[in-house]
């Protein structure tokens, strides 16, 4: 099948980019990224620079890949990252627009590649349970009801791809941030740091330049891992509670 692609080409973070038009011959068994591989091989053959895009595992779990296809993050199939999106969902003659995630917190590095370091910094600001190696009690010492373990797992499935930010009209990182806050917050192990975690992560997300949540739900709809809006409510709850009860950290405490 012959396809027409309009791809965002941008040499580096400092330069201006623009949409470029390409034609490519694909077949229905290819994955979307394999179709781009074919395009890139042709471009290299002509001595042109291939389209840069992030990808690694190509099985939908590492979270490296992702761009916007015809206005939808990760393309038209729900619950599917672009690496697992197959060309049989498109038809000959389709015209496709490929654009990078758009957010000031995700500056474009090149073509469809963006810098998602802001996500790492959000995690660094509190997205963990402080459990230094060697200090753990027996794994079965604290039973965790299955439904909480499952809920935690639901939130923990986030792959950090950034589609939620890309799809949000406010470029908000609320779904991402709330997924980590919920993953850790529903577990008894995560309870001691629950409030501080919410305060710090939410503040960091804003400081990184992400927008606010307007409860629109586009993030949930494009999330390849089915992370739910429910977790944003949980984050808000933790945050409100924490703000209400916040007090100055005691200098006698262990936070050094």
């Amino acid at each position: 099948m012959k396809l027409t692609l309009h791809v965002w080409r941008q040499k580096n973070a400092a330069s201006q980019g623009k949409m470029e038009r390409y034609e490519v011959e694909a077949n229905e068994h290819m994955s979307f990224l394999e179709m781009l591989d074919v395009l890139n091989e042709e471009l290299i053959g002509k001595g042109q620079e291939p389209v840069a895009f992030d990808h690694d595992c190509r099985e939908g779990i590492c979270g490296s890949c992702g761009f916007v296809i015809n206005g939808v993050a990760h393309g038209p199939m729900p619950g599917t990252t672009v690496c697992q999106l197959h060309m049989r969902h498109f038809k000959a003659g389709d015209e496709l627009y490929l654009e990078p995630w758009r957010a000031s917190a995700f500056p474009v590095v090149k073509d469809l590649v963006v810098d998602r370091g802001a996500f790492d910094r959000i995690i660094a600001s509190g997205g963990y349970i402080s459990a230094s190696t060697g200090s753990a009690p027996d794994a079965n010492a604290v039973p965790i009801p299955k439904k909480y373990a499952d809920l935690s797992m639901d939130a923990a499935q986030c792959i950090g791809c950034g589609a939620c930010v890309a799809a949000c009209p406010n470029a908000s990182a609320s779904l991402f941030t709330s997924a980590k806050i919920s993953h850790l917050g529903v577990l008894p192990q995560g309870e001691p740091e629950r409030r501080e975690r919410a305060l710090r992560m939410v503040a960091t997300a804003t400081a990184e330049g992400f927008g606010n949540c307007t409860n629109i739900g586009e993030c949930e709809a494009v999330c390849p891992k089915g992370i739910r809006l429910e977790f944003i409510a949980r984050m808000n709850r933790d945050y409100i509670q924490a703000s209400w009860l916040q007090r100055q950290e005691s200098s006698a405490g262990g936070v050094g």
Partner: peptide, 13 residues
């Protein structure tokens, strides 16, 4: 396993 559970790895239960 102890270490991972303490870190919040949501193993099946």
């Amino acid at each position: 396993i102890d270490q991972c559970v303490a870190q919040g790895v949501p193993f099946a239960r």
